[in-house]
């Protein structure tokens, strides 16, 4: 089966990185695949390159060398809207600069499907409403985004991404700033989207337990390189995590056979 996404030896450095006051940062020789229908969790310490991977996959940035293929075709051959019909990104929560409503936000997800149109059509509205229903924000459709809670806004943004009808859904820290209830809600929603609609998901998270719980495979990045990729139980090793994160970590199987990663506090 052709992978949905394939990165082959991707190198990247930000312009001016490593000069003067910026810390040197490079993505080196990053290669991995995302199979259709899987959930891939991307984990790693701060500045390991997680967000850079998202930016490369959505062509906000282009690799210095190496290739990124989507369904076997180089990203460079796709226009921005062609790409946006296939890959949707849910960024970290940030309300827009103007008080758009939930419905207006979700309709923005229809832009790549008809970039030349001035107004969205009836079909766009139907798809947007369906996406809002899927993430449970249909009742909030006429509300301004800035009036919502962080969790509601996150689900609205997720609905916007679903309205793009993407094959790959990328989420950047989907549960950051959310309390436990919303975390559980978002996690359940992602699993449902994956199982019921077959949406392929790339999930970037600092929450190793959430990533392990949701993902079929984990990709561990460290200092711009792939440290390991595989099923959660192969990646979440105490010694590997301790080396990559630079702190003591315990990994245990909970009674529900979930993997539980815990930081061991340094002794006082």
């Amino acid at each position: 089966m052709t992978p949905l996404v394939e990165l082959r030896g991707v190198d990247f450095a930000y312009p001016g990185s490593g000069t003067r006051r910026t810390r040197p940062f490079r993505l080196s020789e990053v290669s991995f695949e995302i199979a259709p229908g899987e959930i891939l969790g991307v984990i790693g310490p701060n500045s390991a390159g997680k967000t850079t991977v998202i930016r490369l996959l959505s062509k906000v940035l282009e690799p210095l060398s190496g290739e990124i293929l989507l369904e076997g075709k180089s990203l460079l051959t796709l226009t921005r809207w062609e790409l946006a019909r296939r890959v949707a990104v849910v960024p970290q929560d940030a309300p827009p600069a103007f008080p758009f409503t939930v419905e207006q936000l979700v309709l923005m997800g229809r832009y790549p499907h008809a970039p030349g149109r001035f107004f969205e059509g009836g079909e766009d509205l139907a798809i947007a409403r369906e996406a809002m229903a899927a993430t449970g924000v249909l009742g909030l459709a006429p509300c301004a985004l800035e009036s919502l809670s962080g969790g509601e806004r996150q689900r609205a943004t997720l609905a916007r991404a679903l309205a793009q009808q993407p094959r790959l859904l990328i989420l950047d820290e989907p549960t950051a700033h959310l309390d436990l209830r919303y975390q559980a809600e978002v996690a359940g929603l992602l699993r449902r989207l994956n199982r019921e609609r077959g949406v392929t998901i790339l999930l970037v998270s600092h929450d190793l337990n959430l990533a392990a719980e949701l993902s079929d495979r984990l990709l561990l990045l460290a200092e711009g390189r792939v440290a390991r990729v595989g099923p959660p139980e192969e990646v979440l090793h105490e010694s590997l995590l301790a080396k990559v994160y630079g702190c003591r970590v315990s990994v245990e199987k909970s009674p529900g056979s979930r993997l539980v990663v815990q930081v061991m506090w340094p002794e006082a």
Partner: peptide, 9 residues
């Protein structure tokens, strides 16, 4: 935001 706009095409 600019990045989101790019990601939407």
């Amino acid at each position: 935001g600019e990045e989101s706009a790019i990601q939407l095409g």
